[in-house]
Amino acid sequence: MNEIIADLMKVVTDITEGEVQPDPAQTGDDSIRNLGLNSLRMLNFLVTVEDMFGIEWEDDLPESVLGSFEQMARYITEQRDVQYA
């Protein structure tokens, strides 16, 4: 899971062209939301994560999953487990 979180943080750094560098110690609730990404960058982030991990965000996904590195990494792990089951 830590590896996924590190990958997610790198995506943030890449899509913000280095202007936002997440703190590896901040992974809990609202840790993504607290980065202050605007709507467009948040969308780019989600699309890039879909491509990177081969997942699709479900429409009924709780907002909290998209706002936290930990919860997002857990969701990605679960999605991959389903895909490879």
């Binding site: 913000t16 202007e19 936002v20 939301r33 607290n34 202050g36 990404l37 605007n38 709507s39 467009l40 960058r41 948040m42």
Partner: peptide
């Protein structure tokens, strides 16, 4: 800013 401005208005740089 997050508490006072819509998400699309947040400065990115």
């Amino acid at each position: 800013c997050r508490g006072r401005l819509a998400v699309y208005k947040l400065p990115q740089r």
